[in-house]
Each structure stands twice: as structure tokens, then as C-alpha cells.
């Protein structure tokens, strides 16, 4: 899958308290999972985000990004439409866990000063953020070792698979083989 801990991309700026209804409105939650990207941030201040975002873009936001619902469709939609990383001053608990679990990196940093369209390079291991145009720098909180492990595995399910099938249940695994890829 090639997960990299150094991410370079173009910035989209959002404010404090971006809730999950802004990230993925309730009416779109029942859509088939492969269509969720079309609704990413469609309840936000940038409702046409899915048509503007490019693969590898980075969201930077204020405090409490992802507050509200447990809907995992929210980080899934962001990942699907191409968002490579979300940086915020803080995250709501469930969103933060969901994002890591599905393989969308999230990092805590104060990026006040960045503007829409800025190109930045982020090192998840060190927490360093650098704007490419002028070498403006800031250091956030490095992504934890446990979270990196999950991200590098390709998400929580891959990690659980290794746990369940690697240690205790090698024989059990083949029983569910038909579901492995879907």
C-alpha cells in the first residue's frame, strides 16, 4: 500500500469545531461506501469540496475537528475523495480513533498562519510541518507509535487479522476466506 510518514500536499483551511454533520451530512450516510467521497465536507463552509479537492490534499483545522457522531463514514469520505492527512489543534475522540482505524492519518498541531492553497510537507514521526514556498515551520505532536503501527498496517482490521490469525486462530482463518477481499 506504501504508507509514507512524510506527506506533502496542498492545504485546505477549516475553523474550530467542524462537526461530523459538516464532514458527512446524515442524509448521505446510507449511501454505498464507494460513493461517500462525493459528499465529503458537503455540509461545511465549502460544500463543493469534493469537486475541488485533489488527491494528496491536506486539511488543516482548529480545535475539536470531527466533533459529534461516531459515523465512520466521515473519515472514510475524506480519505476516499483524496484527503491524505488531517491536521487540527485538537480532535474529537471518536473521529480521531475512526480516522486511524481506517488508515487516515491525523496529527495535532497549531497551524495558524497557513492558508488555502499553501503547499506543506509534514513528517508524522517528528511532528514537523514546513511550508514549501518560504520554509515557514511549526512542530506539532508526533503521531504516536501505536497509531503509526495501525496506519502502516493499513488500518485496524489488518492489525486484528494479524492478531487473531497469527497467534490464536490460524486454523480459523480459512473459514472466512471468501470474504477476505470484500
Amino acid at each position: 500500500m506504501g504508507f509514507s510518514t512524510v506527506i506533502r500536499g496542498r492545504v485546505w483551511v477549516f475553523a474550530d469545531d467542524v462537526d461530523t454533520d459538516q464532514i458527512l451530512p446524515g442524509h448521505s450516510m446510507s449511501k454505498p461506501p464507494e460513493e461517500l467521497g462525493k459528499y465529503a465536507m458537503s455540509g461545511s463552509a465549502i460544500p463543493d469540496f469534493p469537486t475541488k479537492v485533489k488527491c494528496g490534499d491536506i486539511i488543516v483545522a482548529g480545535f475539536n475537528f470531527g466533533m459529534g457522531s461516531s459515523r465512520e463514514q466521515a473519515p472514510v469520505a475524506l480519505k476516499q475523495c483524496g484527503v491524505a492527512l488531517v491536521i487540527a489543534k485538537s480532535f474529537a475522540r471518536i473521529f480521531r480513533r475512526n480516522a486511524i482505524n481506517i488508515g487516515l492519518p491525523v496529527m495535532v498541531a497549531d497551524t495558524t498562519g497557513l492558508q488555502n492553497g499553501d503547499e506543506i510537507e509534514v513528517n508524522l514521526r517528528t511532528g514537523s510541518i514546513r511550508r514549501l514556498s518560504d520554509d515557514w515551520c511549526v512542530t506539532g505532536i508526533p503521531v504516536s507509535a501505536v497509531a503509526l503501527e495501525t496506519l502502516e498496517a493499513g488500518g485496524l482490521i489488518e492489525k486484528v487479522k494479524r492478531q487473531v490469525c497469527g497467534n490464536e486462530g490460524r486454523g480459523l482463518c480459512s473459514a472466512g476466506k471468501d470474504h477476505k477481499d470484500h
Binding site: I157, V164, C173, A175, G176, K177, H179, K180, D181
Partner: peptide, 10 residues
């Protein structure tokens, strides 16, 4: 459910 199936246990 979709994610559970991916784990592949009976």
C-alpha cells in the same frame, strides 16, 4: 459487518 468479514473468522 463489511470490516468484520475482512477479518475472516467463522
Amino acid at each position: 459487518i463489511r470490516e468484520f468479514y475482512k477479518i475472516g473468522i467463522p
